[in-house]
């Protein structure tokens, strides 16, 4: 879809980048909302002014946040923070768009990981479509690669989908530092959040692999976070990384999505293998039925990176 009118919900790093880059992709932003306010203009908002206002005063406009849902748009971009269980309010935002026969593009993992079946059901009753490339691996085209191959031709997906945990593990290995020390460094650099639980306990990675499982199952089976076996990196001492290194290996937080389910755990991988990406990079390996293994790596997080995935999804929508 080209020349789409976008309503962007969420004005965090991803939402703001979508607003900033939309024009470059030939789209118009007709509404943007953060948690407390909205800016709406059917002819297109003044994106620079709205972003300045957000930076200066913390709000995007004078309208009620909810008003953005009823604005004129072709595609709703759901970029509010990920929530678990009922995945609200993100789920209702998407439901609202589909109810209006509009498309929805998600950067929010919650609805796709926790309520995939509900989403697909609503989509089936709507003229709108949902896409969610941005929920898995930021800028890396994973869902679209699976779609290109056909889910039936991919037998498993595995890899590193959390940049924070990967940064911590690769720094621990390279510098011989312990977990607490590197975590503090990551927080100073803005790589880890003040509350890093989601990242270091493996929950964020698990949500992404749950989403991949749902895509790979193609409706035969539905997965949620509860179906995943999740183990984080908080208990790994520096000595474990040293022992791994002596043997030409290292430790990475690896997720796996197979027909049997989803696991996320620290695993031993060859030091020089494709899965031992360093820093905040992400990588996904897809096992194909006839074409061996595909490795796709790149930046798995960040505003412009994730916005790129959102805007590519908008382009993929059919009118």
């Amino acid at each position: 879809m080209s020349g789409a009118r976008l309503a962007v919900l969420g004005a965090g790093a991803v939402g703001r980048s979508v607003v900033e880059l939309a024009a470059e992709y030939g789209h118009t932003v007709t509404a943007v909302a953060d948690s407390s306010s909205a800016a709406i203009d059917p002819d297109g908002i003044d994106t620079a002014a709205v972003l300045d206002r957000k930076a200066d005063s913390g709000v995007v406009g004078d309208a009620d946040a909810d008003a953005a849902l009823d604005a004129e748009y072709d595609v709703l971009v759901e970029a509010t923070p990920t929530t678990l269980d009922d995945a609200e309010p993100g789920f209702s935002h998407v439901a609202h768009a589909l109810d209006r026969d509009r498309h929805a593009v998600l950067a929010n993992k919650g609805p796709v990981a926790e309520r995939y079946g509900d989403l697909r059901e609503l989509e089936a009753d709507s003229d709108g479509q949902i896409r969610f490339e941005a929920t898995v691996g930021g800028a890396i085209p994973i869902c679209s690669t699976i779609a290109d191959f056909g889910a039936g031709h991919i037998t498993a997906a595995r890899g590193v989908l959390n940049g924070t945990a990967n940064f911590i593990l690769s720094r621990m290995a390279a510098e011989g530092l312990d977990y607490e020390h590197v975590l503090a460094e990551a927080q100073d650099l803005g790589v880890a959040e003040a509350d890093p639980t989601f990242d270091v306990e493996g929950i964020d990675a698990a949500l992404k692999f749950v989403i991949l499982s749902n895509v790979l199952a193609a409706g035969d089976q539905e997965f949620t976070l509860d179906d995943a076996t999740v183990d984080g990196i908080t208990d790994i001492p520096g000595s474990a990384l040293d022992l791994a290194a002596e043997d030409g290996r290292t430790i990475r937080l690896i997720g796996e999505a197979t027909p049997d389910g989803v696991t996320v755990a620290p695993r031993l991988v060859p030091d020089d293998g494709p899965l031992s990406v360093t820093g905040t990079l992400n990588i996904v390996q897809l096992e194909t039925t006839h074409a061996g293994r595909l490795n796709i790596s790149g930046r798995g997080a960040g505003g412009p990176e994730t916005a790129t995935a959102v805007l590519s999804d908008v382009s993929r929508l059919t009118e």
Partner: peptide, 12 residues
């Protein structure tokens, strides 16, 4: 105790 397992399957 915590077991850190290798990835099974042939990793190149």
């Amino acid at each position: 105790l915590h077991v850190i397992e290798p990835l099974t399957g042939d990793q190149p």
